[in-house]
Structures are given as C-alpha cells and as structure tokens.
Amino acid sequence: MKNRVATATTIGATALAILALPASAQDEPDRSDWPSSFTVGTASQGGTYFAYGSGWANLVGEELGLSGGGEVTGGPMQNMALVHNGDAAFGLTTMGPAAESIAGQNPIAPGLEMTNACAIFPMYQTPFSVTTLSSSGIESIEDIPDGSRIGFGPAGSTSDTYFPRMMDTLGVNYERRNGGWEDLGGQLQDGLIDVIAFAAGVPIPTVSQLEVQTDINIIDFTEEQQATIAEEFPVSDFEIPADTYQTLEEPARSVAMWNFAIADCGLPASFVNEVVDIVMSDNERMVGIHQAAEETLPENWDKNKVLKWHPGAAEWFRENADADIPEDMVFGN
C-alpha cells in the first residue's frame, strides 16, 4: 500500500512539474536522434544554388543551434547522388534531374534508382537564359554562329543536362564547354568562349557581375522557340522581369523548371519538420538570402510531381498549407 501511495505521489509531482514548464519547453521536440551537424549540397560558386543553399544552411544552423553549411558540388545531379547515399543531409535539385535520377538515369551512377532523396520544400523556378558580350553582335538565338563555344555550367548540372539538348532542338551548332559560373564569366570576358547558357535562379550573381564590368546581351527566346522547347522538355514559359538586371529594358522570354530542396529520407521527421518550419514561416528572411526565394512559398508545394515527400515535410505542409499530399507520395507509404 505504501508503494502505491509513493508511486501516485511521484506521478502527481511529475505531472505538476510538467504543467509548471513554459509552453515552449513542453512543445520542444525530442532531439535525441537529431544530427549535430549537416551539409547542404549546392552547386558552383557564382551561381544561385550556392548563394541560396549556403544562406539557408546558415539560417537553419543558427536557429536550431547546429553546425550547418553549404557544400560546393556539381549541382542537381550530384546533389541527388549525395543525398541518396547519405553523404549530404540536404541538397538542392530541379525536377528534371530528380526524375532522371529516380529512374536510374543519373550519369554519376547509371542504373542506380536514387529513391532515398525526399522533397522537403519548394524553392523557385530556374529560368534558362543566354548571355553574351554585346561586342559579339549576337542578339538572338539565330545569331549564334556555327561552332560557337558555349559554356553550359558544371558537368552534370541542370544547365549542362538540358541546355545542350535545347540548343540541338533549336538547330544551334556549337562546341560544348563546362565549368563553374564564375570561371565561365571570366572566360567570356577573355574571349575564350562566346556564349554562356545559364540555368539558374535570377538574378544570377555572375550575370550581375558581368554587366557591371562590361556590356552584355541577355538573349531571350521567341514565342515559337518557347513552344518548341516546351514540347520536348519538362519546362514552362517564364519571363525574366526587366528589373532583374540593368541590361534589360523589357522582360526577357525564357523557359523554366522548378527547384526543390531535398533531404535524406532517413532523417528524423521532427528534425525535418523544424527545418521546413524555419524556411517556410518567414519568407522575408529567405528573400534576404536571395531574391529567387520570393517563390519559396507554402502554396507552391504542388509543383512537386516527381519526388516522394519526407514524412516530416509532408506533415508540415498538411498542417500549415492545407496540402493535399497523397499517401503514396510520402516516403515509407
């Protein structure tokens, strides 16, 4: 009987202690299985992925008291591989490379179906745009001379994966060059290449830097070219706003592909839920990291039609954005 009384007294005291805790302490998630540090796979320096991903990593690290940082990578294809293999907790990818990776068509590991990379939140659309020096005389896609040296970004990046095919579709004859965006910007100024074909969120740091240092042309597509590309690739029409660059006097026609942040599907749901909450609950902070984050909004959850959702992310969007995410699109179901 004494033991029962002692047990009841202990339980009652514990309950009172819990009730006495601040609400925030009671709601604090269990961090016992959280990682103490994390990396975000981005892309080359000078591109939007690096600025966006590094800024996001720093924000999440500071908010959660963890060590987090961006890692320079080859872009979406490599990020899918890094996250799938558990070599990076998070990464950034576009829908096209994500679909190819899931289907076992990632050139980094042909035949490997990369299904351990889960969607966690929408980022922004990646426009495909063409930049050259004004001195080249190139003012349209048709003006690009046969044999022009075109820089398509890092090998395996979204630009390198899709832009050469787009140029083929539009009948452009070219020599293919690869490199980081900053490096290609320097090559363009030095006359080592003739054109840069970018696939990156706008404003692209390298383009912003180029137009300060020299006169450039930002070449847009015609409506017919937009339609031709959209028939062949998973893209939609897009306009680069005129105020994006000093060089533009009016919006530039383009096509674009959606980007999503991804996570190792095995990360704790509570951890990923907190990460998503930090990113999606304060868009102003994200826009402060990069202007492209203006599209990092909860309502854009439905732009993912390729990747399985991480359970922690799916929970956040269902509870906070009325997201109708089907059960079969959540990892583990």
Results as ranks from 00 to 15, higher is better:
Asn3Trp: 13
Asn3Ala: 14
Arg4Pro: 00
Val5Glu: 04
Thr7Ser: 14
Thr9Tyr: 08
Thr9Ile: 09
Thr9Lys: 13
Ala15Ser: 09
Ala17Gln: 02
Ala23Ser: 15
Ser24Phe: 06
Gln26Trp: 01
Gln26Glu: 01
Gln26Tyr: 00
Asp27Gly: 00
Asp27Thr: 05
Arg31Ala: 08
Trp34Ser: 02
Pro35Ser: 05
Ser36Thr: 10
Ser37Gln: 08
Gly41Asp: 09
Gly46Asp: 03
Gly46Thr: 04
Trp56Asn: 12
Leu64Gln: 04
Leu66Ser: 04
Gly68Tyr: 06
Gly68Phe: 03
Val72Glu: 12
Gly74Tyr: 11
Pro76Leu: 06
Gln78Asn: 10
Val83Gly: 15
Asn85Lys: 14
Ala88Glu: 14
Gly91His: 12
Met95Phe: 07
Pro110Thr: 12
Leu112Gln: 10
Asn116Phe: 08
Ile120Glu: 00
Pro122Ser: 11
Gln125Ala: 09
Pro127His: 04
Ile141His: 10
Ile144Arg: 05
Ile150Arg: 07
Ile150Thr: 07
Gly153Ala: 02
Ser157Gln: 05
Ser159Gln: 04
Tyr162Ile: 05
Tyr162Pro: 00
Tyr174Met: 03
Arg176Glu: 14
Arg177His: 15
Trp181Phe: 09
Glu182Phe: 06
Ile196Glu: 12
Ile196Val: 14
Ala197Val: 00
Ile204Pro: 13
Glu211Gln: 02
Val212Ser: 15
Ile216Leu: 10
Ile218Pro: 11
Ile219Cys: 03
Glu224Asp: 10
Ala227His: 04
Ala227Pro: 00
Ala227Glu: 06
Thr228Phe: 04
Ile229Pro: 04
Val235Ile: 06
Glu239Asp: 15
Pro241Leu: 09
Asp243Arg: 01
Glu249Trp: 00
Ser254Ile: 02
Val255Leu: 11
Met257Cys: 13
Asn259Phe: 09
Cys265Lys: 13
Gly266Glu: 12
Leu267His: 11
Ser270Phe: 03
Ile278Trp: 01
Val279Ser: 08
Val279Pro: 13
Asn300Ser: 15
Asp302Pro: 01
Asp302Glu: 08
Asp302Met: 01
Leu307Met: 09
Lys308Trp: 01
Gly312Lys: 11
Ala313His: 03
Ala314Gln: 13
Trp316Leu: 08
Phe317Leu: 03
Glu319Ser: 07
Asp328Cys: 08
Met329Cys: 04
